[in-house]
Amino acid sequence: MNNQKEKISALIISYNEIGYIEKCVESVTFADEIIVVDSYSTDGTYEYLKNHPKVRVIQHPFSNFTLQKAYALKQAQNDWVLFLDADEVVSEDLKNEIIATVNSDTDIAAYWFYRRFMFQNSPLHFSGWQTDKNYRLFRKSKAQFSDKKIVHETLDVDGKSGILKEKLTHYCYKNYEDYKGKMLRYGRLKAKESFYREKQFNYISYVVKPLWKFFNHYVIRLGFLDGRKGIIISYLNALSDLERFRELKKLEKKNELAYYLLMP
């Protein structure tokens, strides 16, 4: 039991995260409540969460990341929210910094976290992720998820932002098939986002943007210094962009077909 004055709600969304979510949950047991919104996992994740004495698990269908996280945010009982992905872990030093931060006399509404990326169990030092940061700690009363993005969701903050010193550990790469599947799903969601914004498919972007993504991550962002890991990460991130344009083209064709079918 901790002596903190301010209460914290730890929020997580999950789907088939067994083997990773256990470390995530155990790293936030200092929070006053832990709420996990699970999108009907089939690998034992839900059963593990249901039997955990400190976790309140809610099953909710997944539409996109923004809507799922917005739903989870509504469940929080406390103003201070620590929002994690199921494959992220809070270190002891970061835990202490979080507790000290929320109990300080601060007018900051939200805090960015830098992340330490893990390729399986070894660190990924470069490959484009060395400057990655995300909002993870914020006041519920001062922030909401933007409805402009459905993947790599962003937070709209009413107030000042700060950055915590300690890094959040992110186990981004479990194995090749898992990361590939994740990148393909992100690409399809980004295609929907582009389609809703009325961005049109074109062959120049289809060819150039994936090549640029690989070159940017592997060469400019020093992925080659990560060795074989850097090649894999850079390739799969480029594949996500390729999938985005493939899916956007499919969505446009479906839309055209629906239009002609509805014509009198």
Score class of each variant (00 low, 15 high):
Asn2Pro: 04
Asn3Phe: 13
Asn3Gly: 15
Lys5Val: 15
Lys7Leu: 11
Ile8Arg: 11
Ile8Ser: 04
Ser9Ala: 13
Ala10Cys: 05
Tyr15His: 14
Asn16Gly: 01
Asn16Pro: 00
Ile18Thr: 11
Ile18Asn: 09
Gly19Pro: 11
Ile21Cys: 05
Glu22Gln: 12
Ser27Lys: 05
Thr29Met: 12
Phe30Asn: 02
Phe30Trp: 02
Ala31Phe: 01
Asp32Lys: 06
Ile34Tyr: 07
Ile34Ser: 00
Ser39Tyr: 09
Thr45Ile: 01
Lys50Pro: 03
Asn51Ser: 12
His52Glu: 01
His52Gln: 00
His52Leu: 07
Pro53Leu: 02
Val55Cys: 06
Val57Glu: 10
Val57Leu: 03
Pro61Tyr: 10
Asn64Arg: 01
Asn64Trp: 03
Phe65His: 14
Lys69Gln: 15
Tyr71Cys: 01
Tyr71Val: 04
Leu73Trp: 05
Lys74Cys: 01
Gln75Lys: 07
Asp79Asn: 13
Asp79His: 10
Trp80Val: 10
Phe83Ala: 09
Phe83Asp: 03
Leu84Trp: 00
Asp85Ala: 08
Asp87Phe: 09
Val90Cys: 02
Asp93Trp: 00
Asp93Cys: 02
Leu94Arg: 07
Asn96Glu: 13
Ile99Leu: 15
Ala100Gln: 14
Thr101Ile: 07
Asn103Ser: 09
Asp107Ser: 13
Phe113Trp: 10
Arg115Cys: 05
Phe117Asn: 11
Met118Ile: 07
Met118Thr: 10
Met118Phe: 08
Met118Asn: 12
Trp129Gln: 08
Asp132Gly: 14
Arg136Trp: 04
Arg139Glu: 06
Arg139Thr: 00
Lys140Asn: 05
Asp147Ser: 13
Lys148Glu: 15
Ile150Thr: 11
Val151Gly: 10
Thr154Ile: 00
Asp156Phe: 04
Val157Met: 05
Val157His: 04
Asp158Tyr: 09
Gly159Phe: 06
Lys160Asp: 13
Glu166Asp: 11
Lys167Ile: 04
Tyr176Ala: 08
Asp178Tyr: 08
Tyr179Asn: 04
Lys180Cys: 10
Gly181Asn: 12
Leu184Cys: 12
Gly187Gln: 05
Gly187Met: 02
Arg188His: 14
Leu189Arg: 08
Lys190Glu: 13
Lys192Leu: 12
Phe195Thr: 02
Phe201Trp: 15
Asn202Ile: 08
Ile204Lys: 15
Ile204Ser: 14
Ser205Thr: 07
Tyr206Val: 04
Tyr206Cys: 11
Val208Cys: 11
Pro210Val: 02
Phe214Val: 05
Asn216Thr: 10
His217Ala: 08
Phe224Ala: 09
Phe224Gly: 06
Asp226Arg: 04
Arg228Met: 12
Lys229Leu: 01
Ile233Ser: 01
Ala238Asp: 00
Ser240Asp: 05
Ser240Lys: 09
Leu242Met: 11
Leu242Ile: 03
Glu243Leu: 04
Phe245Ser: 01
Leu248Ser: 07
Leu251Gly: 07
Lys253Cys: 04
Lys254Pro: 05
Lys254Thr: 06
Asn255Val: 00
Leu257Ile: 15
Tyr259Lys: 12
Leu261Pro: 01
Met263Pro: 04
